[in-house]
Design a protein around this nucleic acid. Structure first.
Lengths: 205, 205
DNA sequence: TTGCTTACATTCATGAATGTATGTAATTAT
DNA sequence: ATAATTACATACATTCATGAATGTAAGCAA
């Protein structure tokens, strides 16, 4: 029953997002009720409905908080004009992403939620479409990087940049999925960096 | 209000499984109620509870119906002793799997449900563990095939069969995921076979 | 200081959804 | 022919979950 100032309200909002992430992770998005989130955040449902229209709205807010920074990072890592060692740039981007999953708990949880704790149905299929756009963007940028690599003679001559880009992207999507699925064992988690390096070695001449 | 014989009961059981698949696909597993399934199958909830204990039980039955044949196919395609052109065998296995997704509606729906219409939480995390075991098996068998390929000099000498196997598996997991996600556009669906061939060409010497 | 707004808490009406219990006609076993 | 069992349908009790309506105290502007 504590009333707050604008700044305090923003804190509450963040608390709710953080709480939602925890609960989504253990209960799944569909099985999570506003009440669950409220309890975890230490507020009432009233507070949540004040800040968000409904669960979908809350979910989107959560997603943006994590993914907007990722897009920026991608541009920074992959697309700088100084094109020295493009292959290393790609490898770097992939490794950095894995590193983020290891270090940043919030990001990791969000990936996990999006890949194995969420049913993409009804309003949520919009999220999936968004994801497809994002990965299209990644593919394009990766292709550019591979083209530069080819110009610099880093690739085996028979390799086509477009094919390499899509192959790498699929490899990475697979890796992320298995990384997330394999939370208990460590078949993929520990070896991720090593797997990326091996993957890149396959294309280097 | 029609009472049936043993054989008719089995038909009802299959009807229920088929109905569940449809409804799971459009509503997601969590948001699907027994009533939804019952209506789709043209029976009452009573009938479903007669054949299955609960939704999880029904889901598992559905899964087995589709995945048990897959394991067999894998053994047949990848593991035959006559080791002529092992690389082609791997490619063949991957292409056949995609082909199944294209031709067999039930299989396709099941993959879609498992990858983007299901939250792996609570009782369902057991399903995920099962999946991990299956993919471990695939990896092993793929590695064997790559080892044979190496013996026969099909691979570039610098390539390690174990690495190739895991790389191919991740590629394929990624491909399946994107194949499923990309139901509306056709960025991946039409090109899947082509992508597989390009992937395999990367390792062939 | 007064009155409006913010930031929630509380209460309520309503609708699902589940699982079980009970009913019942047709099959099958004896 | 009778009893038991099967394969369901129907009815019920209970437990959520939602969203909106209402209440309220603390901030804030004039």
């Amino acid at each position: 029953m504590v009333r707050k100032t604008k700044e305090d309200a923003e804190l509450t909002r963040q608390d709710i997002i953080r709480a939602a992430r925890e609960v989504f992770l253990v209960r799944g998005v569909s099985r999570t009720t506003m009440e669950h989130i409220a309890i975890q955040a230490g507020v009432t449902r009233g507070a949540i409905y004040w800040h968000f229209n409904n669960k979908t709205d809350l979910f989107q807010a959560m997603r943006e908080q994590v993914f907007l920074p990722l897009i920026d990072r991608m541009d920074d890592t992959l697309l700088v004009e100084d094109s020295e060692d493009p292959i290393a740039r790609i490898e770097n981007f992939l490794c950095k992403t894995i590193q983020m999953l290891n270090e940043n708990t919030e990001t990791r949880k969000m990936y996990e939620i999006m890949m194995i704790k969420c049913e993409y149905v009804g309003e949520f299929s919009a999220v999936l479409r968004q994801t497809l756009l994002t990965s299209s963007g990644i593919e394009e940028k990766m292709q550019l990087a591979y083209e530069r690599a080819k110009e610099q003679g880093q690739l085996q001559p028979s390799h086509d940049p477009a094919q390499l880009a899509i192959d790498t992207q699929l490899f990475f999507v697979g890796l992320l999925l298995m990384w997330v699925r394999d939370s208990e064992g460590n078949h993929f988690r520990n070896r991720a960096i090593e797997l990326i390096k091996a993957h890149m070695r396959l294309r280097h001449r």
